[in-house]
């Protein structure tokens, strides 16, 4: 069984937000409808994003490190957001493990977003349906694109190659190898959600 996922290398992420903007660009132009903004040029701009880059300072000055931390839906193998959905709009694809929302079935009750410990879901304020990272399902399955481009927009945009994409159930894949050999870990393992996305830790420089 396939489980597509991102593996994000915190050792090389430079916090440039290219993945954020390319995600926004691709997903606002896609077949599933726009990724809308509210008041984008006003004093309190707001909008839906599937991916964000956050920054943390780790350690006590002067021994600190700046860690840039990209955050999107982790496509959990046991996603708590799916069984709580009253309509079945929230679902996990059997063929590749991507967690998706059927925007035509969603009633906008927000319960799935409460049930996600990571805050990976955002309501689309103009359409009033729940939205989330689709792992660019409309890109990665598009056979009219060259095979090298059938990757999520964020992966294509990353200038430092901090974002790897592949099947974590295939032990031979690039992502499985990265998780295995570079200490790939899950976020909030305490809730048993088994996130498919993994993070690669910072490494000691020689």
């Amino acid at each position: 069984m396939t489980q597509l996922a991102l593996v994000i290398d915190l050792n090389v992420c430079v916090g440039c937000h290219a993945c954020v903007t390319s995600c926004k660009q691709w997903n606002t132009s896609g077949s599933a409808g726009p990724l809308t903004d509210d008041n984008p040029y006003g004093s309190d701009p707001s909008g839906s994003f599937f991916n964000r880059v956050q920054t943390f300072e780790v350690g006590e000055y002067p021994n600190t490190q700046t860690v840039h931390f990209p955050k999107s839906c982790l496509h959990c193998e046991d996603p708590p957001c799916v069984p709580v959905c009253p309509t079945g709009a929230s679902y996990k694809r059997k063929e590749d493990g991507i967690v998706l929302v059927d925007y035509d079935k969603c009633i906008g009750c927000k319960y799935c977003s409460w049930a996600c410990p990571y805050g990976a879901r955002e309501i689309d304020e103009s359409r009033q349906v729940m939205t989330k990272c689709t792992l660019c399902v409309d890109r990665i399955t598009d056979t009219t694109l060259p095979a090298s481009e059938r990757k999520p927009a964020c992966v294509m945009a990353c200038p430092t190659n901090a974002r790897l994409f592949g099947d974590i159930h295939d032990p031979q894949s690039e992502v499985s190898e990265a998780i295995r050999e570079r200490g790939g870990y899950e976020l909030m393992p305490e809730w048993g959600t088994r996130p498919a996305n993994h993070y690669l830790p910072r490494r000691q420089a020689d």
């Binding site: 707001s46 994003f49 956050q54 920054t55 300072e57 780790v58 879901r121 304020e125």
Partner: peptide, 18 residues
């Protein structure tokens, strides 16, 4: 990250969000 001291420096945007 297993470090006792971690501070967030940016949440990635300056406006509000869901």
């Amino acid at each position: 990250i297993r470090q006792p001291v971690i501070r967030q420096r940016s949440q990635g945007f300056m406006g509000s969000s869901y």
